[in-house]
């Protein structure tokens, strides 16, 4: 498939909650294997846009088309607390899978993924015993297990310290290498410029800026100007 084939097309998307417009005619195309950063102040509509793409919210107007399976990584992880790390990864995948060999290969795949993320020792532990960074890794691993074509990440670094944020950058970068298209919502511009090749700035539910990170000399400062206006 053409690398620049649009994986996701959003046309005039609008959404309001209790009369307050959160998305205002947002139109966007995301190419295959693109890593798109969604920047913007709190309440600008980043999370709502992601939730609409995942169909956790229904659009009031406009349309969205996605050419593949979508994975979602929640801001607060939303791991299943009564399942172990390994069970969290495998549950959805093994559901209805009667073939023992395939179940076994799923388990192998999950273990390899945990190993790659450096948390293979936590496989049999419950989420409450993990640190924030470890939960983040499990959440990423779980969303990658279902083999998504598009991965949506909602504030993947919120509440994490600098070192763990760097780990998350590396993690997401390694996920990008698998060719998955990513849309990452964050208010952390440094983080976004490290990971994305394109950044879209949302303000009051509208796209106010669309930056190609490689073409821009100082993307962080460039984006900051639009934050302040």
């Amino acid at each position: 498939m053409n690398e620049k084939w649009p994986m996701l097309k959003i046309h005039n998307a609008s959404k309001s909650f209790n009369g307050v417009e959160v998305l205002n005619n947002v139109s966007l195309e995301v190419a295959k294997s693109d890593v798109l950063g969604l920047a913007g102040p709190s309440g600008s509509g980043k999370s709502t846009l992601l939730r609409c793409i995942q169909q956790l919210e229904i659009l009031d107007g406009g349309s969205m088309e996605c050419d593949g399976k979508i994975g979602f990584m929640f801001q607060d992880f939303q791991l299943f607390p009564h399942l172990t790390v390994l069970q969290n990864l495998l549950y959805a995948l093994n559901l209805g899978e009667k073939n023992a060999r395939r179940r076994q290969s799923n388990e192998m795949q999950a273990k390899i993924m945990l190993k790659n993320l450096g948390i293979e020792a936590k496989a049999s532990m419950y989420p409450y015993s993990l640190s924030g960074g470890q939960k983040q890794r499990v959440a990423l691993a779980r969303s990658l297990m279902v083999d998504p074509d598009v991965l949506l990440c909602d504030e993947p670094t919120s509440g994490l310290d600098v070192a763990t944020t760097m780990d998350v950058v590396l993690l997401l970068k390694s996920a990008c290498e698998t060719g998955v298209t990513m849309i990452i919502a964050s208010h952390d511009l440094d983080f976004l410029t490290k990971i994305s090749n394109r950044i879209v700035l949302l303000r009051d539910g509208k796209i106010v800026l669309d930056v190609d990170v490689k073409q821009c000399q100082d993307p962080v400062n460039h984006l900051k100007k639009y934050y302040a206006d």
Binding site: Q54, L56, I70, G71, F72, F74, D76, Q78, L79, F80, Y91, A92, L95, R142, S143, V146
Partner: peptide
């Protein structure tokens, strides 16, 4: 979010209630 996480993973409603 627990309901939403189950939905995003494609877990059918019956299994979501029973197992999650």
């Amino acid at each position: 979010g627990q309901f939403e996480a189950a939905r995003t993973l494609g877990i059918p409603t019956f299994y979501m209630w029973r197992d999650i």
